[in-house]
Design a protein around this nucleic acid. Structure first.
Length: 613
DNA sequence: GCATGCGCACGCT
DNA sequence: AGCGTGCGCATGC
């Protein structure tokens, strides 16, 4: 234990140096302490080392030089950093240093920019690899960064004095990440951290060693992974919070946002463990919980609980609620059933692109609004497509598209308006009801629906309610203009895509060939089963995508897609420019491809996902 | 010579 | 834009 007197002197000195914008390095500290208090530099050095071990002082390597920080101050100042830092795996140092738990002064976790840059705080008491705060992952990360040394420098007080910097990336051997033990070490660290999480150590302290890691270069996802470790208990709280909020919002409010959750947690964080909940930290934990499946994130980035889609605002729960409210809700049960099944499937399939897609959606968010304008509604298929495809989307994005009942609308509409699924008058009436709420565009959809419905045989109609209108997977799907969907494109999730089909065929119509179909639109009275609606694009392989565009009448461009190795996921992530310029295809076809296929596929996919979220 | 103050640049959020 | 850090220079003792 350091001598209180020295601690005071040293901290004071560090503060002083900092205040005069001088680097609080060993030399300056010793000199100032000696000058002010007459202390022997060696003694000062020793005391400083003790303070570092106690995490009262943080040793950082900033821009290639060692610097010291008043841990308490650092933490207070850089809460944000802490949050980020907190995401990283905990430092083993916490474990071995019983003394480290010097809970009083140490809130070492915080990191200031310098700390971040310094890459590593030193709280590592044990220079041995196993105790090194760095996880193998982090090390790898740094190695990848290619500028590891400076930032990777972690001070290891225990080694040879304060000035000894240890590089966790293995450069100094103290923390050889590349060693076979690295992974194991990390696990152990994790465990210990977890242990700490529920033990006496305050969260900030637990995070100390790691926080420094907070390197600007670190990839968010890695951070998330690392952070996952820390927040065990927080995770529980988080999940509980989401559930609670979901319950609260089950009446049709917007899906949960990070802000909301944060706010909720904030009200409870105080009694939890006293730690400060930061947006970033919660986010990280959130990610973790989502990974674990305890929470779920919608495509738009909202948080909800697994069983309740979107906190009931737009998801299945909502759908069922909506159905219950509808006069004709005979089909609500099947809907729900289908939705719940689909959720799992789609969720997994699409999780990967969720974030990016959400981002995209955000970008396009305003569009639906404008297109909902009556004047934008044209009899042409394309216009129609936009309107309808967007409707659910906008609702999902919390846009009030259809009066105040948007929440229900997306799902309902998708269900009711689909020609293929529409089976009973009740649905039709529901659709009309929706039409009344939403306006012209819906009416049009209903019209199309009616037309299509009539074309169905009674048997077909009856079969539809079960949500399992089947298509023979082996049979090429015939789309308008004789375009067929390659058998290679599986239809496994057809049930999931039924809504899409409905939307696509009734509302979209873009599919098929760029020729007649696109001109004809809905007026042709031909309801095409768009390829996009038959399967989940997420599942498409590069070949599937190519086949799709070939079938759609863009054989040349299909080749470009193939050349660029665009698979379903990539396709759903493509942006306008990607299509127009990234594929090196002619502008004309590119525009058509984007507007009539890519965009539609994306929207359909998103909307479908949202509806089932 | 040393301590201190601070303008300014840099990097990060 | 705001913030933390610290180099480098000016100033004072």
């Amino acid at each position: 234990m350091s001598e209180p007197r020295y601690r005071e002197w040293i901290l004071e000195t560090i503060d002083s140096l900092r205040s005069r914008k001088a680097r609080p390095d060993l030399e300056r500290i010793c000199r100032m302490v000696r000058r002010r208090h007459g202390s022997d530099p060696d003694r000062t050095r020793a005391e400083l080392e003790k303070l570092i071990q106690e995490q009262t002082v943080l040793k950082v390597n900033y821009k290639g030089s060692v610097s010291y920080r008043n841990a308490a101050k650092v933490q207070r100042k850089c809460r944000r950093k802490v949050e980020q830092a907190g995401e990283r795996t905990k430092h083993a140092a916490f474990d071995n240093s019983g003394s480290s738990s010097n809970a009083k002064n140490d809130n070492i976790s915080a990191r200031s920019p310098a700390d971040l840059e310094a890459l590593e705080l030193t709280p590592c008491r044990d220079p041995s690899p196993s105790s090194c705060s760095r996880s193998a992952e982090e090390k790898r990360e740094e190695e990848d960064d290619g500028e590891e040394e400076e930032e990777a420098a972690v001070v290891s007080p225990a080694t040879g004095g304060i000035s000894s910097l240890t590089s966790c990336d293995g450069r100094n051997g103290s923390c050889d990440t590349s060693s076979p033990a690295a992974g194991r070490v990390e696990v152990e660290e994790t465990r210990s951290v977890l242990g700490h999480a529920s033990s006496d150590l305050p969260e900030p302290e637990r995070r100390t060693c790691t926080s420094a890691r907070n390197n600007k270069q670190h990839a968010p996802q890695l951070r998330a992974v690392k952070s996952s470790v820390k927040a065990v208990d927080l995770g529980d709280r988080l999940v509980a919070a989401v559930w609670s909020l979901s319950e609260r919002n089950s009446r049709g409010h917007a899906p949960l946002g990070l802000k909301e959750i944060l706010g909720y947690l904030g009200t409870q964080a105080a009694h939890a463990d006293g730690e400060k909940l930061t947006r970033h930290r919660v986010k990280v934990v959130l990610e973790r919980e989502i990974e674990k499946g305890r929470l779920r994130r919608t495509r738009l980035g909202h948080i909800t609980v697994p069983g309740r889609r979107w906190g009931g605002s737009t998801g299945a729960a909502k759908a069922s609620e909506a159905s219950a409210r509808l006069p004709a809700n005979t089909n609500s049960a099947p809907q729900d059933g289908r939705i719940s099944k689909q959720e799992n499937v789609k969720e997994e399939e699409s999780m990967e692109v969720e974030c990016k897609e959400a981002g995209k959606m955000d970008e396009e968010e305003p569009e639906p609004l404008t297109q909902l304008e009556p004047q934008n509604i044209k009899p042409e298929g394309e216009a129609e497509v936009k309107v309808h495809v967007h409707t659910p989307l906008s609702a999902g994005v919390e846009v009030k598209a259809c009066g105040g009942s948007v929440t229900d609308t997306p799902v309902i509409m998708e269900e009711e308006l689909q020609p293929s699924t529409l089976s009973s008058p009740s649905k039709l009436s529901s659709a009309h009801q929706e039409a009344e709420q939403c306006g012209t565009e819906v009416e049009m959809a209903v019209q199309g629906e009616s037309i299509h419905t009539e074309s169905l045989t009674q048997d077909q109609k009856e079969a539809i309610p079960d949500q399992v209108q089947t298509l023979t997977p082996d049979e090429p799907v015939v789309v308008s203009d004789g375009v067929t969907i390659p058998p290679s494109i599986t239809i496994k999730n057809y049930s999931v895509c039924k809504a899409e089909v409905g939307v696509s065929s009734c509302l979209l119509t873009p599919s098929a060939s760029p020729g007649a179909a696109e001109e004809r639109g809905m007026n042709g009275g031909v309801f095409v089963k768009s390829e996009s609606s038959i399967t989940n694009p997420v599942d498409w392989t590069v070949a599937d995508v190519a086949s799709y565009f070939t079938a759609a009448g863009f054989p040349e461009q299909a080749l470009a897609f193939r050349m660029q190795e665009i698979d379903g996921k990539s396709l759903l992530l493509m942006q306008r420019n990607d299509v127009l310029t990234g594929l090196s295809i002619r502008l004309g076809p590119a525009l058509k491809i984007y507007e009539r296929h890519v965009k539609v596929l994306q929207r359909t996919h998103f909307q479908d996902d949202e509806a089932f979220c």
